[in-house]
Design a protein around this nucleic acid. Structure first.
Lengths: 86, 86
DNA sequence: AAGATTGGTCAGCCGTAGCTTACCGTTCGT
DNA sequence: ACGAACGGTAAGCTACGGCTGACCAATCTT
């Protein structure tokens, strides 16, 4: 995903950069697209992929709220007196 | 990890809750301990595990800075005029 | 001192994520 | 119209994460 941050790229172009084959890249892009993290656009025989800002932001938010919840409830506990029942 | 958030627990105790066997739990705890996310304390034949606040916070920070960097550099790009070279 | 509890470790099995190769469809250039 | 460029998809292989069962060590109880 980091390789798409700079600018939109075609599949083969990505594959050149990465240590994996073109089909592998294509498969990755498929799941990223399904997840809404990238969008694609046909350009002749080429297919240009770019990051989807909304998707990436959404993911970030999800993780944020997850961690917020986790740490909140956790700190609640640590602030309580140690109530260990052997 | 969530099962440790509430209060410290012994290995067998965790295994009862979880859908996996006791050895499996033990193995998970090992990697969590190596990662500094939990600490353990001997209590008789039992071994009590608890979350390590420092470790968890550190992980959270790592992820935070990762996402901050990623989104920052990404938004830099999106704000620039679209410079697509076919 | 002997049995019972508890937990770590080892060996082995299994499912699956992720890769490659091969193939096919589509679009562009000439 | 035909070859070249580019990508998606299918089939198959491999490596590995994660689980289980068996075993051993340590501690507690009586």
């Amino acid at each position: 995903m980091a390789c798409l941050a700079e600018r939109p790229r075609a599949v083969g172009e990505l594959a050149e950069t990465l240590p994996i084959s073109r089909p592998a890249v294509s498969q990755h892009l498929k799941v990223l697209k399904d997840a809404g993290l990238v969008t694609d656009r046909a350009a002749g025989t080429r297919r240009v992929y770019r990051l989807n800002p909304a998707g990436v932001a959404a993911l970030r938010d999800q993780l944020d709220t997850y961690w917020a919840r986790a740490l909140d409830s956790f700190q609640d506990v640590t602030k309580r007196p140690d109530e260990e029942k052997s």
